[in-house]
Write a protein that binds this DNA or RNA. Structure first.
Lengths: 107, 107
DNA sequence: ATTTGTTATCGTAATATTGCAATAATACAA
DNA sequence: TTGTATTATTGCAATATTACGATAACAAAT
């Protein structure tokens, strides 16, 4: 046991849960916030900004990236991370649509 | 290690992560959706509807409840669950405010 | 008081997540 | 090519989550 039974839920439900999972760790929320507040989309100083090891940040970035939320471009030696705003917007809308639907039928 | 370093993040960031965690498991999303789609706020047949053991559902309900998202009233023998719409709305707004702020400063 | 129906809690096993050091991989500069 | 800077990956160890059976706790009815 211990594994989530993904197959017993609808695609919509699994999608909402998958989106929420990205934001369910403070490091990932902090990374997204930090990237967004930088003038240009700044890179490896995420590690300095947040107090976690480089390997850990890289791992969290992978989770964020797997959700389609990052665009990266190389600038000199370093990789310049940027939020994929279109996808970000899309997730927000999916989430809101779930919230709104749920509120509607409520007693 | 393996424990999240909650103390190195701001309250706002931890709050967003905590909200997201509630929705990060498909069972909890399914439970919320199911409760909302019932005419009256129906009770223990959540167990029948979703294919999980009663103990497991109860555990998920506790997580949802700890986030302030449930109102329960006794009706005869059984506990009648209902979504706390005000709190639900509040979480939606907190989430949206994070999304909107993040989108704003984006490159 | 006993039974019945309902929900919560406990104990435990399986799996997932988090975090880091070490190391690989990559890109640029000299 | 060699060195330097940056990011990804690998391989653990620690902790958290998920799931379930068993059992407790509670309310209502008999």
């Amino acid at each position: 046991m211990g594994a989530s039974k993904v197959d017993i839920y609808s695609n919509e439900i699994n999608e909402i849960a998958a989106i929420a999972k990205v934001f369910s760790h403070p490091a990932r929320v902090a990374i997204l916030q930090y990237i967004s507040t930088q003038e240009a989309c700044i890179c490896n100083d995420i590690v300095d900004e947040i107090g976690l090891a480089q390997a850990t940040i890289s791992q969290h970035l992978k989770v964020i990236n797997d959700a389609g939320l990052l665009k990266g471009t190389f600038e000199g030696k370093s990789l310049c991370y940027c939020i994929n705003v279109e996808r970000f917007q899309e997730l927000q809308e999916l989430f809101n649509s779930f919230f709104n639907k749920t509120k509607l039928n409520c007693c």
